[in-house]
Design a protein around this nucleic acid. Structure first.
Length: 139
DNA sequence: GCCAACGTTGGC
DNA sequence: GCCAACGTTGGC
């Protein structure tokens, strides 16, 4: 199983919006970046991801699971753009802030730190465990 | 609100 | 195929 990170501005699509969709999940639509799209094409059902709030909050706030593999983004007819569906698994007991991540030695190589603009990113297993530990949340 | 970083576009 | 111009993102 692989691990990922999904980034969203809470004013556009927040963790609460995601939770409201329940087990059915929701398309992670709107990605218009090839790198991000390519990562979504690699995702398998059951892969886990962090849900990160950018801009105002700048923190990992929850864990999601891929519940549909890459398919055409329903928000566009442009065949270049695919997306997966994800569903909320559980919130973080304590959100893990970008400051905390930047301050953690073992997380200094995270894509979130190195390439903050990429909206869908891979996360290593070690990073996954470390962030969950910081958030006092089961991996 | 500013600005740096970076991806995309289009002219050549 | 290169590169300048431009638009977008996200941290500060």
């Amino acid at each position: 199983m692989a691990y990922w990170l999904f980034k969203s501005e809470p004013s556009t699509w927040s963790w609460d919006d995601q939770v409201a969709k329940g087990a059915a999940g929701e398309e992670w639509d709107g990605v218009r970046n090839y790198q991000a799209r390519n990562f979504m094409r690699e995702m398998k059902i059951g892969d886990r991801g962090f849900f990160y709030h950018s801009q105002t909050e700048k923190a990992v706030v929850g864990i999601v699971e891929v519940c549909a593999e890459a398919h055409q983004d329903s928000k566009t007819d442009d065949e270049r753009w695919d997306c997966v569906d994800i569903k909320a698994v559980r919130p973080f007991v304590q959100p893990v802030t970008l400051d905390q991540i930047k301050g953690a030695e073992e997380l200094s190589e995270m894509v979130l730190v190195k390439n903050s603009r990429l909206s869908v990113q891979p996360v290593t297993e070690a990073e996954w465990k470390a962030v969950c530990a910081l958030g006092k949340t089961d991996p």
